[in-house]
Amino acid sequence: MTNLPPPNSIKAPTLLVGVDFGLPNFDVELQELGLLAQTAGLTPVARVTCKRRAPDAALFIGSGKADEIKLLATQLGVQEILFDQSLSPAQQRNLERHLELPVNDRTLLILEIFGQRARSHEGKLQVELARLQYLSTRLVRRWSHLERQSGGIGLRGGPGETQIELDRRMIGDNIKRIKERLAKVKRQRHTQRRQRDRRDTFTISLVGYTNAGKSTLFNTLVKARAYAADQLFATLDTTTRQLYLGDVGRMISLSDTVGFIRDLPHGLIDAFQATLQEAVDADLLLHVVDCASDTYLNQIAEVQGVLKEIGAGDIPQILVFNKLDALDDTRRPPVLQDVYDLGGVPTPRIFLSAQDGEGVAALRQLLTEAVRARRPAVSVATDFPPDHEAAD
């Protein structure tokens, strides 16, 4: 992203733009884009939406709306324009020339947030790979330094090779190197999974839309201190801990994974295959849903779409409707456990509050039943005692 400040610096005034093409899930208020912008260190100062039958090939929004946005941006002192949809390289380039301001899209915004939040070596590699793959499509006369360079003795490239070709080759080399390093990480994870299989470990992964409360529930279940906050993409790196279930006398493996979001860039899905593999290889998925959100149905659909894309669509699930404490009495469900029709599959559902602990004991009972149904109980003497409920 162009000149994005660090989270604690002065935040750049930003104009948010969304185009309604008549597709479902259009965010009329651009609330999620605004939250993403704030998370990345920007300050939304205005929101502009419009309707079109199809994107304009050159400017995405058409010249008339582009002129309107340019005038508004000048009046408000905006430093950046941010689109809620993905822009083609040509559209982005044309808009920047027309508006005379940096223009970025939802894809690069999410990449920037991931870059800020990644902590582990693997996470940083995955984000860098996705960022380079994104930038590789935007090297067509994108910068003013694209002057023709003469080749010569001691210089890479032949006579007349342009700076853009050098940039493309450099990015290609970096992509190849990062893919090789990630392949090594994937092999290491595969070895770890084989070891878990030999130990007959029951594995559970928490999945869900970003900011649904996965990390808070994870901390509550295993008494861990994984980072949790009321913000988008608070957790990027997979964290795995052991959870003791006394009724079956055994430990199970519980993993907290990266949150999903609408229009999650495919490059990120590909880059995070090693991390998302925890979900693919799980025996059970805890699909955490923010039941206080007005768009929870759309969020469930987005998560199911990503799970299907990564090959985890057929893994058994328990729907965990979290944030029960955020519902007033009129919205509180009369029954806290039932069965939910998830794409035609009857799926256990439980309402709880990971924040205050209501319903967590009932969830542990559901997990116990799932383990019993999958594998016979193991003697307590062969497993960890209850006072080692959480282990690194």
Rank of each mutant, 00 (worst) to 15 (best):
G22D: 01
K186E: 09
P6T: 13
H145E: 10
I81G: 05
F60Q: 02
G115H: 08
V360A: 11
D237T: 02
K70W: 01
R364V: 09
N94C: 05
R331S: 13
V289T: 03
D341R: 00
D56I: 08
V48P: 07
L285V: 12
F83R: 01
V335Q: 12
E29F: 15
V258C: 02
R194Q: 15
E358H: 14
T220N: 08
R156Q: 09
L33N: 03
R148G: 11
T347N: 06
I175M: 10
I69S: 03
F321H: 03
T39R: 11
P376C: 13
I61S: 08
Q317C: 14
Y244P: 02
L109C: 07
L324M: 04
T203V: 14
A90E: 11
L182S: 06
G357F: 08
D356V: 13
A183G: 13
D294P: 04
A391R: 14
R148Y: 05
C50R: 14
G172P: 07
A312C: 10
G22M: 03
L139C: 10
F233T: 01
P346L: 02
R199S: 13
P333C: 06
Q195A: 15
A224T: 09
I315W: 04
D281W: 11
Q85Y: 00
P386E: 10
T347H: 02
R250F: 09
E369G: 01
R156Y: 09
V335Y: 08
V303F: 00
F321T: 00
V288M: 01
V306Y: 03
V371R: 00
A57P: 09
H287D: 01
G172L: 06
L146Q: 05
Q149R: 12
I81K: 01
G151V: 10
A354N: 02
K323D: 00
G213S: 07
A377Y: 10
N3P: 14
P13N: 05
P316C: 09
L236K: 03
T382K: 15
T2C: 10
P102W: 14
R138W: 00
L33T: 06
